[in-house]
Amino acid sequence: MYATNYHRASSLSEAEQMLAAAEEGKLLSGGQTLIPTMKQRLAAPTDVVDLRHVAELKGISVSGGVVKIGAGTTHAEVAGSADIQSACPALAGLASHIGDPHVRHMGTIGGSIANNDPAADYPSAMLALNATIHTNKREIAADDFFVGMFETALGDDEIVTAVSFEAPDSAAYQKFPNPASRYAMAGVFVAKKGGTVRVGVTGAGSDGVYRASDMEQALSGSFSPDALDGVSVDPGGMLSDIHGTAEYRAHLVKVMAKRAVAAA
């Protein structure tokens, strides 16, 4: 790891100031991606601003069918939250299978979506749940937030503070893990709200997380696994590596989607 300066923020405004004062600052939430990246010398921020002690970023609330999760909420807290388990069990289930127990104790939802790793789990849920991403500056619809691999709509001085979404009528997430890294090689989050079905796909697409609109269309007509039989996934838009060819990933996306619908 290259040398860096550590700052611990105790409030959002302090974090903003610390970030603004840094030459090339990075926000450190759970650190489960940033620190490994810094260890590999692939990231070299001059300063890191630790958000773990910012109270404003904590907490889960459900009211009037709207779920709001503070950006600093860990995967373990989301997985273990009775409120989330009741309002959106699919999201609790997703969180309970991110990384491993130790990673889940540190990693946060805000960190995950701000990083937008193409194989991360949460972004698919945010898209499918039509979530709103709250920052210190504005609110951004998930559809506008995830721009591409490791790219989001966030500005340099922008901090994710929370995500919110209306609890779906039903939802499910199915992931096929990479045999080595255990990250999603194809992860599909399906959510149904009224007559609308949204499908978020992670791990597979060559531009990162995306919405499978043809699947959404098919499922809006009939929310059943069979409804996807006629949908084909184009390998042309898929990642391809030693673990999975584009054809295999395209196939897995469909299998995971059908399984998610069956489980929802």
Partner: peptide, 23 residues
């Protein structure tokens, strides 16, 4: 080097974490 093997697990404030992935 990639926060996967778990040989470094300790408890911080009562929770298991990877001490190679925390400053």
């Amino acid at each position: 080097d990639t926060s996967q093997c778990g040989a470094c697990v300790v408890h911080v404030d009562g929770k298991a974490v990877k001490s190679c992935t925390m400053l």
